[in-house]
Design a protein around this nucleic acid. Sequence first.
DNA 1: TTGCACCTTGACGCCGGTGTAAAGGTCAAG
DNA 2: CTTGACCTTTACACCGGCGTCAAGGTGCAA
Lengths: 132, 132
Amino acid sequence: MRIGELARRTGVSTRVLRYYEQRGLLCAQRDANGYRRYDDEESVETVGRIRELLATGLNTDDIRALLPCAQGGPGLNPCAFSCGIVERQMAQLDAEMAELARRRAALGAYAQVMRERRAQDEALAARALRSA
Amino acid sequence: MRIGELARRTGVSTRVLRYYEQRGLLCAQRDANGYRRYDDEESVETVGRIRELLATGLNTDDIRALLPCAQGGPGLNPCAFSCGIVERQMAQLDAEMAELARRRAALGAYAQVMRERRAQDEALAARALRSA
DNA sequence: TTGCACCTTGACGCCGGTGTAAAGGTCAAG
DNA sequence: CTTGACCTTTACACCGGCGTCAAGGTGCAA
């Protein structure tokens, strides 16, 4: 399977597949003419896993470290290491959610102030209208 | 007050103050030699408000639209418009929080799978150790 | 032979707030 | 006059996953 077919079967652009290879997430054999050649099964699965992991917010560096374990790599130690990466990312997500909650609260305070200002303005306008 | 002093009093770099001016968030008079001159009170407050709003995740375009109202601008209509901006941003934050929650859940599923794999590996290693 | 689909590498753009540097003007103090 | 602090504008870099274009090679079909 060449890169175009892998792109079609995964719904990912060829640009992205080459990018994943450059980042060390995906490997390919080469034909005599230099074209990339992928195995039928494994590559599709690997690309799927990469997309899933990316969608969790992990970056390509972390995914590169994670993939050998996720694919059944050299066993115990790397897997413990990978668990660390995943847990670190979960903590990161927790921190980001807390940050977003903080922003939302601050924005809510602003909205409150603005609602009050607006009510004031409307009262003022109504009074001006009556006196006119 | 010139730009250096405003920078010191607000804790914001001169680069950032010029950027805010370029984005239309902050205005300054000019001395005869071209130096920016700021009023003593208002500028410090304005910069503070800009920083607060940026910290809520609003971008400079929204803040530019928002500031006249937050400063007691031309009244009713702009303020209603500003309320819309704030509410839109709050909805945006809600969506981002939901997305982060989704990511966290997906990552949790991965962590679960990996924990199981790890336990499997450890059991395997223990058995190998016993049989050796 | 021509055309077309497919492949290759390399490189620039994006977003958006900010750092940082270059190249130069202004002004007060020594 | 020199030094040095302060000011000016212009412009490039960053991050990170990806779109998109350029310039060119390969191979099959009409």
